[in-house]
Amino acid sequence: MYLAQPSRREASPRRFRMCHRVNDVMRLCCELSANQQVQTTVRGSGKGAAAAGGLAFAGGLIGGPLGIAVGGAVGGLLGCWMTSGQFKPLPQIIMELSPQQQQKLYDDLLAVMGDIQWTDLVQLTALVMGNATLKQQLTATLLGYISKELQAQVHYVD
């Protein structure tokens, strides 16, 4: 009698639950960051500032005070063009993380969450949003991860 061995590619129920739990926590992160109105700058805002300042300086050398104004305006537009697309809402960045990055963030957040048990995203969100201290700790851990691991700057949108 021949018994087929399950292939290693087939997902075990435990692995599926872990993937489901990671997805729940990633969606919770999106909810936390959306409530905080957070955007991130992914490396490069210094380029825009350098373009604006550099052209204002060059304009000042060439045209005096009027050259500073023109150079600053042109430099500002150039800086805007150079950095377009680099400011992203944090939920978008979270959902674009690689599986390895999501796992690392999940592990960091799980250390803060402790022994919290949940069955679905709705229950997890209710548990976290109902506990101001836990919500603050998870948000701080999320923003720390984004700053440290992705080397992104965090900005609050007014």
Score class of each variant (00 low, 15 high):
G44L: 01
G54R: 09
V25T: 08
R14W: 10
G130K: 12
D120W: 10
Q5G: 00
G60W: 05
M82I: 15
G79D: 07
A140C: 09
D24I: 00
I62Y: 06
K47V: 13
T41P: 00
V38H: 05
I68W: 09
G59R: 01
Q37C: 10
F16H: 07
K88S: 04
M129P: 02
G71C: 07
S147C: 12
D107R: 15
L32A: 01
H155A: 11
R8N: 03
R17G: 11
Q136S: 11
V74G: 02
L66F: 08
Q86S: 07
R43P: 02
Q5D: 06
G67V: 07
F16V: 10
V154Q: 04
K135R: 15
G46R: 05
P13G: 06
S45I: 06
K148S: 12
S147N: 13
M1I: 08
R15T: 08
Q5S: 04
G85M: 10
Q136W: 04
F87G: 01
A52V: 05
G72A: 15
A11P: 03
A69T: 05
S84T: 13
G46C: 01
L78N: 00
M129L: 14
L150G: 04
L97G: 10
M1L: 09
V157E: 12
S84G: 04
Q103E: 15
S45Q: 11
V122F: 04
R9E: 11
P65F: 01
